[in-house]
């Protein structure tokens, strides 16, 4: 476990050695601010003490910007630059490398998610008190975001471990996560036959996370995200092992 932790720590810190972490977090928060107050009338028009808008926008921001940028380098860069060989020939298990990298990247995403905590605190705590906030959905929403981001990061990690190119990793991750959001939106559902619609609803990130945002925590949603995470981590592990036989 401590090896995993060492790798995770290094990974996490390395984001702050380059401008990537700062740029992504600032850009993400700025975009969130714009959307939160302006998109479809924004917060003020709703005239309710609710952070629903935020919980709808944050997962999209994560999927379409933050997660692809953060995960694209995880394995692809190590393979491309050749640092992987030195890392792997230290006494580490491949699984520890994968899990450490996952934790490092997920940690940064969680920092971003935590930063959005400024909204409820500033708006409904101190200095402003814009009304009494129903804390239940906020807390469950954050739980949902954490689980969702774990799944998204693991998908990014898997894709990063399949290629040597960060650019390819970014676009493929973006595309996959984009699809997983889009398939759940009303627009696509209308065009589909019922059976396919069921499958699509089942895998859609939007429908999976919707429950959390309403304050409803379902075991099946938790299980879904955990399964995706575990599956992708296993896939990444295999992708890393593949070098032995290539």
């Amino acid at each position: 476990m401590s090896t995993t932790w060492t790798i995770a720590k290094r990974e996490f810190r390395s984001y702050f050695d380059s401008p990537v972490a700062y740029v992504v977090i600032c850009l993400g928060l700025a975009a969130l601010g714009l959307l939160f107050f302006n998109y479809r009338g924004g917060f003020w028009d709703a005239n309710r003490a609710s952070l629903e808008q935020m919980f709808i926008q944050v997962p999209r921001g994560l999927s379409w910007l933050v997660v692809p940028v953060i995960t694209m380098r995880l394995i692809a860069e190590e393979k491309h630059s050749g640092t992987l060989e030195l890392l792997i020939t230290l006494p580490v298990r491949d699984s520890e490398v994968i899990f450490g990298k996952f934790l490092g990247a997920w940690g940064l995403v969680l920092v971003f998610i935590a930063a959005t905590g400024l909204y409820p605190i500033l708006m409904f705590g101190w200095p402003w008190d814009l009304g009494s906030l129903d804390t239940g959905p906020v807390l469950s929403g954050y739980l949902g975001l954490a689980l969702f981001s774990a799944a998204a990061v693991s998908i990014g990690l898997l894709i990063s471990s399949l290629t040597e190119s960060q650019v390819i990793a970014f676009f493929v991750t973006f595309l996959v996560l984009f699809m997983l959001h889009i398939v759940g939106s009303g627009m696509t559902l209308d065009m589909l036959p019922p059976r396919v619609e069921y499958v699509v609803t089942f895998i859609s990130f939007e429908t999976r996370i919707a429950g959390f945002l309403r304050g409803a925590i379902h075991a099946r949603d938790i299980l879904f995200f955990l399964t995706v995470t575990a599956g992708c981590l296993t896939g990444s592990f295999w992708a890393l092992e593949r070098r032995k036989w290539a």
């Binding site: 290094r10 390395s14 050749g82 640092t83 006494p91």
Partner: peptide
């Protein structure tokens, strides 16, 4: 592999290390 690697000090060809460290 772990036992083997712990006994070995390895310098790969054109060893690449994390540049930002």
């Amino acid at each position: 592999p772990l036992e083997v690697r712990s006994k070995i000090g390895y310098l790969p060809q054109r060893a690449q290390m994390y540049g930002e460290m």
